[in-house]
């Protein structure tokens, strides 16, 4: 016999609070251990709820995963000011801005990556959309590089992806702290600055 949500005594605010708590715990568990390796029971236990209480909000584990896709990434990538040339300093700032966003959205990005590797179509589409936004924002900053801008944006994205994924594999759960360490930020920024060929005028002091 199914309970009817509308007839229940709990007031809406508390229902929202419980629902939010389940989502936060599920996000963490799916991102860390993967969808297949996480049971609804373990999520319920960590929320201090019964299995039935979780199923009241989300009929299946799949519903829970799909609700998580609405908890999108937060924070904006810096916008370019018109006619500002691309300098090593600017590239360094863009690397660090990316690192800050990746710390802030770590759990979400990790969840998306794990689901992409399981060939989940929604996760793949969300990842592609998020990279397209990043690429678009970078294009504005790299516009002054002329016909090469596209290639340099791809170079920037490949290098930052490589450094950050490598760091994530190395640090695991500690990634959000590691990626905010000034020495690590300086190392990645320096490496990307050394990769990008700057026009002679821009690299002059």
């Amino acid at each position: 016999m199914r309970r009817e949500p509308g007839r229940r005594g709990a007031e809406p605010a508390r229902r929202d609070e419980t629902r939010g708590r389940i989502l936060a715990v599920a996000m963490d568990a799916f991102a860390r251990d993967g969808f297949d390796r996480t049971s609804v029971r373990s999520i319920a236990r960590r929320c201090g709820l019964s299995d039935a209480a979780v199923f009241y909000y989300f009929p299946t584990k799949r519903h829970l995963l799909e609700a998580l896709w609405n908890e999108g990434p937060s924070g904006e990538f810096p916008r370019a000011e018109p006619d500002v040339p691309l300098t090593p300093e600017r590239v360094g700032e863009l690397v660090i801005a990316t690192m800050r966003l990746s710390a802030r959205n770590f759990t979400y990005v990790r969840l998306v990556a794990r689901e992409v590797l399981r060939s989940d179509m929604t996760a793949t589409a969300l990842r592609n959309a998020s990279r397209a936004r990043w690429r678009q924002a970078l294009h504005e900053h790299f516009a002054s590089a002329g016909p090469r801008a596209s290639d340099l944006v791809e170079l920037f994205m490949a290098a930052v992806t490589g450094y950050l994924l490598r760091l994530e594999i190395e640090t695991g759960d500690d990634y959000p702290q590691a990626v905010l360490k000034p020495e690590i930020q300086a190392r990645v920024a320096r490496a990307v600055q050394d990769l990008i060929p700057f026009p002679a005028a821009a690299s002059a002091p």
Binding site: L155, A158, A159, T161, G162, L165, R166, A191, D194, L195
Partner: peptide, 11 residues
């Protein structure tokens, strides 16, 4: 630089 950039391309 090579290791991380090319790993990034591949990943």
């Amino acid at each position: 630089r090579l290791f991380h950039t090319l790993s990034g391309v591949l990943w």
